[in-house]
Write a protein that binds this DNA or RNA. Structure first.
Lengths: 225, 225
DNA sequence: CACCCTTGCGTTCATTCTGTTCACCGGCGT
DNA sequence: ACGCCGGTGAACAGAATGAACGCAAGGGTG
């Protein structure tokens, strides 16, 4: 059993994270803390293997808490859960040894993937014996950070999706692009481009709006948000 | 350019590490320190992105040095290079955010792989923009901890791998080759060619991209980088 | 306002390649 | 001799694409 401490100021969200964690086999929630102070106090009395850490705490930034833990020689593993899409925070987190960095909001599948990745890392390292060889260490590292199959719906391919996004990014003006235009620029058909654009629209990464003007049915144009 | 500080007490070995590093494109050695004290002093005056850290230092354990750096709020990335096959040390290192843990002695290929993995992580994160999305963070994490091609995975043969590489090298134009084409040119089946091409893709020696066109499912073409 | 004309949308379905499984084959150690 | 293990390819299920097609949604015209 991997013992988990949830650190999150918002009580409702904290409950949700705890419930999510409890649903995953091999994990148990030991306690929930709403402030950095509480978290520190809890860690002194309760054995914990993994901390689910929100960065936005009332009394201290989550990264400060992580740094304080390391200074105190506490090596408990940390998984950052935050809504801060901040590049500098990601880099700091990595340098402080967080196992993963998860952006809110997330689906249960994504959350589960990260926790299971950590569980794999743990079991591989424990199974490696006292004097692990290079390839065993490598495997453990790979398990920890290994690919997350952010399962796309059937019929969609990650590489093609990347291409569509690349085309949308290189688009300059405020005007969007129609499905036919995107298809032409990426070397695929309108049908294919449309499939991916509709997916992006449903997941909120792109907006659709009609483009009137000439004769005939209006075109639909897609624009990044 | 990624600026590197080599920390290693044995002068000969330190020189070797510095020379290895200098041979890798995109890296430059800023300085060499033989003690933890020297390393700390150097870091105060010289800008450094990555520290190659030996754990066995005369005045302090390498992990202590790492912890001291974190306490001081210094987020410089660290790659541990040591002969200590110690499970506890590996776990501590991970919790302190080291990017890799490399056992001595190692071949240049292994060393190079770890540094290139770090370079990939860095460029992906920098290329992601100021507000990275979850999948971009995931890719960066995966790049950081991804591959270890020193020992070939089971099911792969060095001779066959050489053949695949030879075929890819003789390919002239900017267009890549599909798995079926590579298989035909090397006198093997598509399945076998694909196995090796996928391995090369995972280790970053080859890139995959979809090739659209006629009706039917798109081909994936492989191209050397 | 009713009608037609134009043009792109949205969907279906044949097509082609992918990714995986599993039986085979040859070599090596017991 | 025998079994085992590492590497290969035939066969298969299904995944991703684009051609074709009927319909939807505007503008133009009387």
């Amino acid at each position: 059993m991997i013992r988990v401490l949830v650190v999150e100021d918002e009580p409702l969200i904290a409950e949700a994270h705890a419930a999510f964690t409890a649903r995953i086999e091999g994990f148990e929630v030991m306690s929930v803390a709403h402030t950095a102070q509480q978290a520190m106090a809890t860690l002194r009395t309760v054995p914990v293997d993994l901390i689910l850490l929100d960065l936005n705490l009332p009394d201290m930034n989550g990264l400060e808490l992580a740094r304080a833990l390391r200074s105190a020689g506490i090596g408990t593993d940390v998984l950052v859960v935050t809504s801060a899409r901040d590049l500098a925070a990601v880099r700091s987190a990595v340098s402080l040894g967080v196992t993963h960095y998860l952006l809110k909001p997330f689906t249960f599948a994504t959350f589960r993937e990260k926790l299971l990745g950590y569980a794999r890392y743990r079991s591989q390292l424990l199974g490696a014996g006292q004097a692990p060889a290079q390839h065993e260490i490598d495997r453990a590292f790979a398990a920890l950070r290994g690919s997350s199959p952010d399962s796309l719906p059937k019929g969609l391919d990650q590489k093609t999706l990347d291409l569509v996004l690349a085309v949308l990014r290189t688009d300059l003006g405020p005007a969007g692009l129609s499905a036919a235009e995107v298809g032409a620029r990426m070397g695929a058909s309108r049908v294919t481009a449309r499939r991916y654009l509709e997916h992006l629209a449903e997941t909120g990464q792109v907006v659709r709006s009609p483009r009137y003007g000439g004769p005939g049915r209006p075109e639909v144009e897609y624009r990044r948000v």
